[in-house]
């Protein structure tokens, strides 16, 4: 196994996630794409951990932290989506434009 096969797969998934974040209108799907990006990052972290033969397993532990933070992010994100949905009967991100003055 060469290192780059993992890294490039990670890069590919990351870019796909990025595409998804940009094109999706439904907020739930945007969050889904963010998860995809985070999964790609995890592949990178674990691949580097194996490549560097890290004695303190830093890559794996950071992958675990990413998973944890992602779980928190999904929880908060979905709560926000739920709140918006309750107020506006829609979960489309392009209708959330109140930040415009």
């Amino acid at each position: 196994m060469i290192l780059n096969q993992f890294l490039i797969l990670g890069a590919f998934l990351f870019s796909l996630g990025m595409y998804g974040v940009l094109v999706r209108r439904n907020a739930v799907l945007v969050l889904l794409s963010v998860e995809l990006m985070l999964a790609a990052v995890n592949i990178n972290l674990v691949a580097f951990d194996a490549y560097l033969r890290d004695a303190i397993a830093g890559g794996q532990i950071f992958a675990l932290f990413v998973i944890t933070v992602a779980a928190a992010e999904v929880g908060i994100g979905l709560a926000i989506v739920l709140l918006i949905f309750r107020n506006r009967q829609s979960a489309n991100v392009d209708e959330m434009d109140l930040m415009k003055l």
Binding site: V21, L22, M96, D97
Partner: peptide, 14 residues
């Protein structure tokens, strides 16, 4: 540029 649409901001960020 201040459309209030998140994804346009995200494009800029990327």
């Amino acid at each position: 540029t201040q459309t209030g649409r998140i994804q346009q901001y995200v494009v800029g960020m990327f």
